[in-house]
């Protein structure tokens, strides 16, 4: 059985830990891009990750970007922060995924696709808030934690699912009293993110709507974006599509607008 302590111990493993990384985050939080770039350059893994990330086709840069200061300059504070959070996650991501059929590449793609689309949505909604921009990195983070938790009981869970139709999120909830979105909330606290981020994430579950209209709207967009992304073949095959229950009625009123923003034919 998975206990509360075990979940906390997994979440406790989530960085920040290395000094250079911490300095980068502090500088980014203060909005000091050049200082952040100098700190990031000291961590070779981080700088190599950033170069690899922004040169993915989804970011759409025509020429290869190599300098960290250049990267932070192009991305701006909020997106740089988001990119560094994504890097923190890769430190935690398992070498070999077992329950979800992911690997380093597909996981990076998932991070990048969610981040780029989320930024597009926030731009469309005229929201300029670096915390809200970073909120999207919590979802991949909690996927990592869930993978680690499930790995403890992988055979039982696989069997349970072959005989009974329960989505993984429900199993998670029943086994450890926390679902994917609760884990996100716990990570948000660990990363000392604003309270509203946890509320957006909870609202994005589609089953715990917020009374605050703006938070609820962001929750809807995040829920729909999650399923838009998880409907891509590599994530369906990875077993992520049926991780959580899609609340189609929750997002019905924003679908048309979403389809326009995402250019769905």
């Amino acid at each position: 059985m998975i206990t509360q302590e075990k979940i906390d111990s997994f979440i406790a493993k989530i960085p920040p830990s290395p000094k250079a990384l911490r300095e980068t985050i502090v500088a980014l939080n203060a909005g000091e891009l050049p200082k952040a770039a100098r700190a990031a350059e000291q961590d070779r893994a981080l700088s190599s990750y950033l170069k690899h990330l922004v040169n993915k086709p989804i970011y759409g840069f025509t020429r290869e970007v190599e300098e960290i200061s250049q990267i932070f300059g192009i991305l701006g504070v909020a997106r740089s922060q988001q990119a560094v959070y994504s890097y923190m996650l890769t430190l935690l991501s398992p070498d070999k995924w077992q329950l979800f059929k992911l690997n380093k590449n597909t996981f990076h793609d998932l991070q990048a696709e969610l981040a780029v689309s989320w930024n597009k949505i926030l731009k469309h909604l005229n929201i300029n808030d670096k915390e809200i921009e970073s909120a999207i990195s919590l979802l991949p983070a909690s996927i990592i934690v869930s993978e680690a938790l499930f790995n403890e009981k992988i055979q039982d869970i696989t069997l349970l699912r072959t005989t009974h139709d329960i989505d993984l999120n429900t199993i998670l909830k029943r086994l450890c009293n926390m679902d994917l979105f609760d884990i996100c909330e716990r990570i948000a606290q660990k990363w000392e993110m604003d309270d509203k981020i946890a509320k957006i994430i909870q609202s994005a579950s589609g089953i715990k709507p917020s009374e605050d209209e703006q938070i609820n709207t962001l929750g809807k967009w995040m829920h729909l974006l999650l399923f838009f992304t998880l409907s891509k073949p590599q994530y369906i095959e990875a077993g992520l599509n049926d991780f959580i229950d899609f609340q189609i009625d929750f997002v019905a009123d924003i679908y048309e607008e979403f389809a326009t923003v995402m250019e769905i034919a």
Binding site: D165, F227, S231, P233, I236, N241, D242, F246, I264
Partner: peptide, 24 residues
């Protein structure tokens, strides 16, 4: 996996079904 009840085997895809995702 399908849910099986009352002689019905029902598959429940979620989200978006297009030429790329349909086969997956």
């Amino acid at each position: 996996r399908a849910t099986v009840k009352d002689g019905l085997g029902v598959f429940h895809p979620q989200g978006f079904l297009d030429g790329v995702s349909g086969t997956a």
